[in-house]
Design a protein around this nucleic acid. Structure first.
Length: 219
DNA sequence: TGAATGATTTACT
DNA sequence: GTAAATCATTCAA
């Protein structure tokens, strides 16, 4: 019953210009991967068309010691299982009764580490995103939050455990940009771990999500 | 079996 | 600025 890894056979990829990053990208320390995610592209090839966005905000979660992580204390359940698997797979979870969040598993197999993608700037398929979100194509609210971008990209529970190196949901190369960092959002329950500056973002992007702390509006 | 809660978003005052 | 929406997951009993 447990569906940790996707076993579905994929149709050929069909979007020129978008090539999945290799597993080596994810097989590194989670803080490194989180930082380098900024500027990369998140791509989802759907039957309705290809959706892509430039990642402008991401956070690192490093269980078991990181009390902000779902894998804190080595918690290993059906939900967190994907984080204990090999890098380059998706960890997707549901929160607050209505929102999906998307993560990339990183590090070595057995290390429950993941990078939460928190915001992107639309690059392709903006019309699809706008339709899914019920907003104008120009609205930053399309993708300036972890739950918002999942809705815009059509990412949900069915993507739990999918391979980001072989399938239709993946990260692709992008221009390198200056990256700022701050404490993570919404993890006040984690005590001292909440103070760690494990959130990375592009300070020049208008699509970075609202931040209660460490907000630096560079120009 | 039941209660608490959350890696959020939206609408409202 | 505050609060409601809404439910899978988790843990205690």
């Amino acid at each position: 019953m447990s569906r940790v890894y996707s076993t579905t056979v994929r149709p050929p990829r069909c979007t020129p210009g978008f090539v999945p990053l290799p597993r080596a990208f994810y097989s590194r320390p989670v803080l490194t991967v989180a930082r380098e995610c900024i500027g990369k592209k998140l791509v989802h090839e759907t039957s309705d068309g290809t959706i892509a966005g430039r990642i402008v905000e991401a956070e690192a979660y490093r269980g078991p010691e990181d009390l902000a992580a779902h894998s804190a204390g080595g918690r290993r359940t059906r939900r967190t299982e994907a984080m204990y698997g090999p890098p380059g797979f998706a960890y997707v979870f549901f929160v607050y009764g209505m929102h999906w969040n998307f993560n990339c598993v990183t590090g070595l197999p057995g290390e429950p580490h993941a990078v939460l993608i928190r915001a992107v700037e639309p690059v392709a398929g903006t019309e699809l995103m706008a339709a899914r979100r019920g907003l104008p194509q120009t609205s930053p609210n399309l993708t300036n939050g972890p739950g918002k971008l999942c809705e815009a990209f059509g990412i949900a529970g069915c993507h739990y455990g999918v391979d980001l190196c072989e399938g239709h949901l993946f990260l692709a190369e992008g221009p390198r940009v200056r990256t700022a960092r701050s404490p993570r959002i919404g993890v006040a329950y984690a005590g001292a771990w909440a103070d760690k500056r494990w959130r990375f973002y592009d300070p020049r992007s208008q699509y970075v999500s609202g931040a209660p702390r460490g907000r630096v509006r560079a120009r």
